[in-house]
Amino acid sequence: RTVITEEFKVPDKMVGFIIGRGGEQISRIQAESGCKIQIASESSGIPERPCVLTGTPESIEQAKRLLGQIVDRCRN
């Protein structure tokens, strides 16, 4: 099985929602997708915060879908 790493950007102001209380939301996304997610600790003042996704191509797609759902929910 091929493990790859891909960068994905999330809106900086939504990082708190993505991580969740005590990290529970990000842990759930990682468990559900099987993908490791590392969010940069600093956005360096830019509106997007880079995340590094590591896993199989399928797990990365699943993680991006779950992250996208959270971002959409927070935008509305």
Rank of each mutant, 00 (worst) to 15 (best):
K9E: 11
G45L: 06
I26E: 02
N76T: 10
S59M: 05
E32N: 04
E7C: 05
I19H: 04
F17S: 12
E58V: 06
S27W: 04
R1P: 03
G16Q: 12
S44D: 14
V3Q: 08
Q69H: 15
K64L: 02
G20A: 06
R1D: 15
C35V: 05
I29D: 02
R28T: 09
E48C: 05
G22A: 11
E42S: 12
G68F: 04
P50D: 08
L66Y: 08
K36T: 10
V52H: 09
S41M: 09
S41N: 15
P50Q: 10
V3C: 08
G68P: 01
I4G: 05
I18W: 03
V71C: 08
G55K: 00
G22M: 06
S59V: 03
G45E: 10
I18G: 03
A63Y: 00
D12C: 09
P47F: 07
A31R: 14
A40W: 07
A31K: 15
I29A: 03
S44L: 13
E24S: 15
R75C: 06
I37V: 10
E42R: 14
M14L: 10
A40S: 13
I37F: 02
R21I: 06
T56V: 07
I60D: 00
F17M: 14
F8M: 08
Q69T: 09
R65Q: 14
P47T: 09
L53A: 02
S41T: 13
L66F: 04
K9M: 13
K13C: 10
G68Y: 11
S59P: 00
F8N: 02
C35I: 02
G22Q: 08
T2C: 06
A31W: 04
P11R: 02
E61T: 13
I26S: 02
T5H: 09
C74G: 15
G34I: 01
E32Y: 10
P50M: 11
E24K: 15
S41K: 15
I18H: 03
I29M: 07
P57L: 06
S41W: 04
K9W: 10
R21P: 15
E7P: 05
A63E: 00
Q69V: 13
R65V: 14
T2Y: 09
G22Y: 04
L53V: 03
P47A: 12
L53P: 00
E24R: 15
I4D: 06
P50W: 05
E48T: 06
G16V: 04
K13T: 09
S43Q: 10
D12A: 13
R21T: 14
I46W: 07
S59E: 11
T5V: 08
E32Q: 15
P50G: 13
E42K: 11
G68W: 09
I70N: 03
K13E: 12
P50K: 12
S41R: 15
I39N: 01
A40Y: 06
G23D: 07
K36F: 03
N76C: 09
C35E: 01
D72C: 05
V52Q: 15
I4Q: 08
S33Q: 01
C74F: 07
G55E: 00
I18V: 08
P57A: 13
Q62I: 11
K9I: 07
R73W: 08
R73Q: 12
A63V: 02
I29L: 12
F8W: 12
I70R: 13
Q30E: 15
I39M: 09
A40Q: 15
F17V: 12
D72V: 07
V71T: 12
E61A: 12
R28G: 05
L67M: 07
G16H: 11
I70M: 13
L67P: 01
E32C: 06
S27P: 03
M14P: 02
E6V: 10
S44K: 14
G55A: 00
E6W: 02
G20I: 01
G68A: 09
G68L: 11
I19Q: 11
M14G: 02
T56W: 02
T2W: 05
P57T: 14
L53T: 00
G23F: 06
S27Y: 03
G68C: 09
R49S: 05
R65E: 15
G34R: 08
E42M: 12
G55T: 00
L67T: 01
S43G: 11
E61D: 15
P47V: 11
C51E: 00
Q30A: 10
G16S: 12
E42G: 13
R1H: 12
D72A: 10
A63H: 00
V10N: 01
A63W: 00
K64C: 02
I46K: 14
E6Q: 09
R1S: 11
S33W: 00
E61F: 12
I4F: 07
R75L: 11
N76P: 14
V71D: 05
D72M: 08
N76G: 15
R1T: 15
V52L: 13
R21K: 13
I37D: 01
T2R: 15
I18F: 05
R65M: 14
I39P: 02
V15R: 03
E24Q: 15
Q25R: 15
N76H: 07
Q69C: 08
K9D: 05
V3G: 04
E48D: 14
G20N: 04
T54I: 09
V10I: 12
T56H: 07
T5E: 11
M14R: 02
K9H: 14
Q30W: 02
Q69G: 13
R65K: 14
T2S: 14
G22T: 08
I39E: 02
Q25D: 08
P11V: 02
I18T: 03
I37W: 00
S59I: 01
K64M: 02
A40L: 11
R73F: 07
R75V: 14
I26F: 04
T56E: 08
N76A: 15
A31T: 11
I4L: 08
V10T: 02
R21H: 12
G20Y: 01
R73C: 05
Q69Y: 03
D12L: 04
T56A: 08
P47H: 12
V3S: 09
I39T: 02
R1V: 11
F17A: 13
K36L: 10
I29V: 10
C74R: 14
P50T: 10
R1N: 15
I29T: 03
E24C: 15
K64F: 00
V3T: 07
G20W: 02
K9G: 14
E48L: 09
V52W: 10
V71W: 04
P50H: 11
G55L: 00
V3A: 09
K13G: 12
E42N: 11
C51Y: 02
V10D: 02
M14F: 06
F17K: 15
R73S: 11
P11W: 02
P11D: 09
I4Y: 14
G23H: 08
R65C: 07
R49G: 05
P47Y: 06
I26M: 10
I4H: 05
I26T: 03
E7A: 08
G68R: 12
V3Y: 10
K9Y: 06
I70P: 02
L53I: 13
Q62T: 13
L66A: 12
T5C: 03
E32W: 05
Q25H: 08
C51Q: 01
E61L: 08
E58T: 14
K36A: 09
S33G: 01
N76K: 04
R49K: 07
V71Q: 10
I37A: 01
R28K: 11
K9P: 14
G55S: 00
L66D: 06
L67V: 08
P57N: 07
R21M: 14
Q69E: 15
S41P: 12
I70W: 07
G23K: 08
Q30H: 03
Q25A: 07
I4K: 12
P47K: 13
I60C: 08
R65F: 15
G20P: 02
P57S: 06
S33C: 08
F8K: 02
I26G: 01
K64P: 00
S27Q: 09
V3M: 12
S33D: 01
I26C: 03
K13H: 15
G20F: 02
G55P: 00
D12Q: 05
I60S: 00
C35A: 12
S27N: 15
R73N: 15
C51K: 00
M14K: 02
A40M: 09
E32H: 04
T5L: 02
C35K: 01
G20K: 05
Q25P: 04
Q62K: 13
R75D: 08
Q62C: 13
